[in-house]
Write a protein that binds this DNA or RNA. Sequence first.
DNA 1: AGCAATAAAGATAATTATTACTAACTTGCT
DNA 2: AGCAAGTTAGTAATAATTATCTTTATTGCT
Lengths: 134, 134
Amino acid sequence: MDSTEKKRNFSRKREAILKAVRSTKCHPTAEWVYRTLKPDYPDLSLGTVYRNLAQFKNDGTIVSVGTINGQERYDGNVTPHTHFVCSSCGAVIDIPGRLIDEAQVEKTAEEMHLRVDSWDVLMHGICAKCLHGK
Amino acid sequence: MDSTEKKRNFSRKREAILKAVRSTKCHPTAEWVYRTLKPDYPDLSLGTVYRNLAQFKNDGTIVSVGTINGQERYDGNVTPHTHFVCSSCGAVIDIPGRLIDEAQVEKTAEEMHLRVDSWDVLMHGICAKCLHGK
DNA sequence: AGCAATAAAGATAATTATTACTAACTTGCT
DNA sequence: AGCAAGTTAGTAATAATTATCTTTATTGCT
Ligand SMILES: [Mn+2]
Ligand SMILES: [Mn+2]
Ligand SMILES: [Zn+2]
Ligand SMILES: [Zn+2]
């Protein structure tokens, strides 16, 4: 048995939080998850959302896109893909594929004596909606 | 003349801040710049560092690597390159090259009706120093 | 079902990075 | 030197996230 593994009880709210993150493509913030669930879970606490998101991120159930405009953005889609961030409205949009040469990453890692666990590509620019005036 | 352009006076401290960012490969935080300059500029204020870094970033004089462990990391090297973040010690290390297929980015941008201004590749893992026990 | 052990949550306080404010000080120009 | 506009120090205010602590919920067992 692994001494680092922690027993985890079932939690209705934790399930709801995971479901909420997985239900959207908007790459939500903790705040978004909180606001979304609050009507159905009136006694939900923001701390609970933060705590569980951190937990899910920690064990790889969800992933973080990074901090955009001061807020961490999460993603329930853990299959590797690329992200685009709109500098105007802050939207985070999925781009299919990795756009990167995996073999070259491996080579670079070896050359520089690094252990590479993951990588992400973040594109910046203006989204279609913001480009079209409205 | 462009009405958006603002007159800017010379400032000894602003020059020092830029020089400090350019002098290192550590991808410093505002705090690091402040601590580094403080001995030579005893009345330097942290707000001044933040204000000028934001300004430099804004007009492209320096660039931001993103927010790592809650702190924005800057880079005086504006030629496109890749970054590696050590999950253990937080070091940000330069990786030469872009590792990405520029033509494919262009194609994707057009297909999805996005205007892509820039992109960065961020690798995560364990750095050489942390891998070797110490 | 009742119960003890412990995990999870709610409420709130604390922390931390960053931004805003304002009076005093510089700079660029005449 | 004298003025207008830009910049700073010092400090207060924000805002996201984390920690704490008490209460509640879940689990495994009798
Ligand atoms: Mn995504
Ligand atoms: Mn760099
Ligand atoms: Zn947009
Ligand atoms: Zn390291």
